[in-house]
């Protein structure tokens, strides 16, 4: 089984971080994993994105022209990646910042009010990325929630005080995606 997912948003929304968390978690689960960022001037001000591939087999191409999933945190990212998704793919939409619905009918879509939930339910506005990551892993088996939390604890040692909020945000995202199933 191979999972490919693009995480995309504005610089500063933490999309690179959630991609790394997923890749780390997959590795800790004994799977092959690969994280590929966009880099260079396109990171300055514009959209930032990374692609994560998780697989039971050694990973061939780290470049995925038609990914199986995309987690889009802002409108430009939605506009860019929705058309690229594989038919039958999964689109996680941050409906706090994206005012349109998906136009494709051949994909699964989860709408998650990530910024709003992070700010009002978790009381941690910067955890919106974790809500979105939760929505993704709630629907797929790329990594288990427990391992993702372990990866968080390992990776974010200098931000330990945000850990409870981030874990709660992940759980909240998971439950949102399951409600929409």
């Amino acid at each position: 089984m191979q999972y490919e997912v693009v995480f995309a948003g504005f610089g500063g929304q933490g999309v690179m971080l959630i991609g790394q968390l997923l890749a780390n978690a997959a590795m800790m689960q004994g799977k092959e994993a690969c994280w590929m960022p966009s880099y260079g001037p396109e990171m300055r001000g514009g959209t930032a994105n990374c692609t994560v591939v998780v697989s039971d087999e050694p990973i061939g191409s780290p470049v995925v022209p038609a990914p199986g999933a995309a987690v889009v945190m802002n409108r430009p990212s939605m506009d860019k990646f929705e058309p690229m998704l594989k038919p039958g793919g999964l689109l996680v939409v941050n409906s706090s910042l994206i005012d349109r619905k998906a136009s494709r009918t051949d994909i699964d879509v989860i709408y998650v009010d990530a910024n709003h939930l992070a700010e009002h339910t978790i009381k941690s506005p910067r955890s919106a990325n974790m809500v979105a990551l939760g929505a993704y892993i709630g629907r797929t088996n790329a990594a288990t929630p427990e391992i993702v939390k372990e990866a968080m604890a390992k990776k974010m040692t200098n931000k330990a005080r945000f850990l409870p909020a981030n874990k709660a945000a992940l759980d909240l995202g998971i439950s949102v995606s399951r409600e929409q199933e």
Binding site: A23, M27, E32, A33, C34, W35, M36, P62
Partner: peptide
């Protein structure tokens, strides 16, 4: 190249 330099893998 960038694919090796920028990419993360185990």
């Amino acid at each position: 190249y960038g694919l090796i330099g920028q990419m993360m893998e185990p």
